[in-house]
Design a protein around this nucleic acid. Structure first.
Length: 272
DNA sequence: ACAAATACCTGTAAGC
DNA sequence: TGCTTACAGGTATTTG
């Protein structure tokens, strides 16, 4: 599922492929994908404009366009994909928004329609982005202290809450908890004073390594990059979806369970 | 004010 | 074989 490393991989692809190019046509046929505004608003914001830059905060990414401080914000949620290729490529089911760049096009494909494309004009932040906590890659130990202080919920619940810290989802939360040595269910107000340092180190290490590996693709291959290629970081997962396998550090079988309704994995010996 | 549960979706896989 | 059910999970909303 697209979390910060997958979104960043797609954003870097967009940087290479479409910055400097002009949108010659736009079609928004998926009503749910443009539910925050309308098909006309998305198409009208896009057509005729040149992409000047790309950006990302947490799991949101955007295209900056060349006048009126216009932007197109994109969130893939769980099953969303952005795919780039020649306009002659066969159309895929569940294609909800298409941006044409002469003979190439960018397609937003999303079977489960949780994803969104949101236009913005005049430099105003859209609501979904304005509510986000600090980006997970921007947090130092002091920042982590501020995320944790005053909270009592389970650690995994806090670090997957985008209002607290943006970009970490179910997969990377498990991997970060493992690297930091804390159980996902550990209540935040029982953490030691070193927790902010350990979480800062674990998060920076896991996320930056995952970006280098171009993200994680699980068995369903829901996540692929702009050119349809899966990522490689799933081979470096230590706990996520590895119930019963030996822990890489101590050999104890990895435990699988549920926390806050989500599949959760940890080592009962290395994580406390 | 905070935390837990639920709704929103479709494709896939397991169980009977 | 074919049906039903559970599960996958991000986030806004609802409930506790």
């Amino acid at each position: 599922m697209p979390e910060l490393p997958e979104v960043e991989t797609v954003r870097r692809g967009l940087d290479l492929m479409i910055v400097g190019r002009t949108i010659t046509a736009a079609r928004a046929t998926g009503a749910r994908t443009v539910r925050a505004s309308s098909a006309a608003a998305v198409e009208g914001t896009a057509i005729g404009r040149t992409v000047t830059a790309t950006g990302r905060h947490g799991k949101w990414m955007w295209l900056s366009l060349d006048d009126e401080a216009a932007r197109l914000y994109i969130h893939l949620r769980m099953s969303g994909q952005l795919l780039w290729g020649p306009s002659t490529t066969a159309p895929r089911p569940h294609t909800h928004v298409v941006l044409e760049f002469d003979s190439d096009e960018l397609r937003f494909v999303d079977p489960r329609t949780f994803g969104e494309v949101v236009p913005s004009i005049g430099g105003s932040l859209i609501a979904g982005v304005a509510r986000q906590g600090p980006d997970a890659l921007m947090l130092d130990p002091d920042g982590w202290h501020n995320v944790l202080v005053g909270r009592r919920a389970a650690l995994k619940s806090v670090i997957t809450d985008q209002h607290c810290v943006a970009g970490i989802g179910n997969i990377y939360a498990d991997e970060i908890c493992f690297r930091a040595g804390f159980r996902p269910s550990r209540l935040v107000d029982t953490l030691p004073k070193t927790a902010a340092w350990r979480l800062a180190d674990a998060t920076t290490s896991i996320l930056s390594t995952a970006i280098e590996a171009r993200g994680s693709s699980l068995s369903d291959e829901q996540y692929v990059d702009l050119l349809g290629r899966p990522g490689d970081f799933q081979h470096q997962h230590r706990v996520h979806a590895r119930a019963g396998e030996p822990c890489a550090k101590c050999g104890t079988a990895i435990t699988g369970g549920r926390l806050a309704g989500r599949g959760t994995y940890w080592c009962g010996r290395c994580q406390r």
